[in-house]
Structures are given as structure tokens and as C-alpha cells.
Simulated assay, not measured.
Amino acid sequence: MMLSRGHRFCSPFRSLLVALCLTGLVSGCAVAPREELGGAQRIVARAYSLGADHLATEHYQVAYEALKRGEAHLNAGEYEQARSAFAIAEHFARVAIQAAQEEQDRLEREFKAKEEAAERRRQLEARQEASLSQDSPKSATRPRRAPEAKPAPEPPPEPEPEKVSHYDVQEGDTLWLIASRPEVYGDPLLWPVLYRANRDQIKDPRRVYEGQTLEVPRNMTDADLDEAREQARQSEIFPIGQLLPLPSSIK
């Protein structure tokens, strides 16, 4: 009688225990695969940083698409499908990393080989050039270009003669010739200035005598000079038409 009641008590307990176990298993399967998501994201990002997107394009593309597919499953609550997609993404990301590293190594070897070939070519050209320069005639026998003729330097300008305040009359002088001399006025039309300043010893402006010392006025305005030139042009004492141009001996 006691065994019968004990047996009836154990059966419901056993059923409850099995139900609890099944509930635990189901709950474990329903946990979102966040850790798997993080691992897949990190390995795909590493593949991208190593240039797998262009060095191992095919494998990287598979990994990237699997990662995106797993994220979509995760958002839809399809956890088992998400775990499978994340595993695929991680696998192909690792394959892409290895392929990218191998491709990078190949490119570096190829670049180094090209650089070495270019250096050998430069060295060969340098040796050939040195050999040609040794075999060529000496530079002393080569025709030399005639130096370009340099234009003759222009003679320095003649210094202006120092202006005088007195002039000693020479044989053959006239007021016209004296006024034209550079050290006097350099302008024969200014002879009236000399005549007016030396009226005390010049009676006839046509005649001056050797040994006379004439005063040469300097403090004159432009108006005074213009007036003297106009007087010379109108005067018949030294006809301009006959006296100009001056003889070359007094220019």
C-alpha cells in the first residue's frame, strides 16, 4: 500500500524534472548570438584594413555578405541562421586575410625586382658611357668653339670743361667764337652778353684783341639768355646765315 502511493508520487515529479530540462535547453538555444556577431565584425574589419577588399576581392565579398546576412537573421530573431552566417563570415574573412597578405608579398617582390633591374640598367649605361669617353680622342684635339666677340666698350663720356668767369682773348678770336666755346657758354648766340659786360674795353663788337681779358657773366636768368639770343638773331654784326654751322675746329 505504501509502495503504491510512493510510486504514484514519483511519476509526477519525474515528469516535472524532464519538462524543466527541456525548458532549459530551449532557453539556451534562444540566446542571441551577440558574441559571434562581434567576432565576425572584428575579423571582417581586419580583412578590410589589410586591403582584402581589392587584394582578395572574391573571398572578402563572401565574408562581407555573410556578415550582413547574419545581422539580418539576428534582427529577425532567427538565431540559428545568424550563428551559421557569422561562422561563414569569419571563415572567409580569415581566408581573405591570408590571400591579401600573399598578394601583398607578391607585389612587393615584383616591385623590388623592377627596381633592381632598373639599377642594373643604370649601372650598365654608366659603364658604357665611361668606356666611350676613354676611347674618344683627347679633348685637346677637339675643335673648340671660338669665343664670342664681346662688343667694344663705349668710350667714357668726355668730361665737361670747367666753366670760366674770365677769358683771355687769343689771336683770331671774335665774340661769336668766344661765346661758342664750351668753357664759356657753348652757344655763339650769347655773344651779346659778353659785349654788354665788357663795354669798357670793347668799342666795336666785331673786334676784340689778343691779350684782352673779358669778364664772363654767370648769374643770368633764362629770360636774360633768351633776350640775348633774340638780339643776336636780329643783329647784322654776326650774320647767322653766314656763320652757322660753326667751323668744326670750335665745335
Rank of each mutant, 00 (worst) to 15 (best):
E162F: 01
K163W: 06
D168M: 10
D168C: 01
D168G: 07
D168Y: 04
Q170L: 12
Q170E: 14
D173G: 10
T174S: 15
L175D: 04
W176F: 13
L177F: 12
A179Y: 02
R181W: 02
E183S: 12
E183N: 09
V184I: 13
Y185T: 06
D187H: 10
D187N: 15
D187P: 08
L189P: 00
L190D: 06
P192N: 11
Y195K: 09
Y195V: 08
Y195R: 08
R196I: 11
R196P: 00
A197E: 14
A197M: 11
A197L: 10
N198T: 11
N198W: 10
Q201L: 13
Q201F: 03
K203L: 10
K203Y: 03
D204Y: 02
D204W: 01
P205R: 07
R206L: 14
R206I: 02
R207A: 07
R207E: 13
Y209Q: 13
Y209M: 09
Y209A: 10
E210M: 06
G211Y: 08
G211L: 08
L214C: 05
P217C: 12
P217G: 07
R218G: 12
R218C: 11
M220S: 01
M220V: 12
D222V: 06
A223H: 03
A223F: 04
E227C: 01
A228F: 05
R229P: 02
R229C: 07
Q231R: 15
A232H: 06
S235F: 03
S235C: 08
E236L: 14
I237T: 15
F238L: 12
I240D: 06
I240Q: 15
Q242D: 14
L243P: 00
P245K: 07
L246Y: 01
P247E: 06
P247H: 09
S248N: 07
S249G: 01
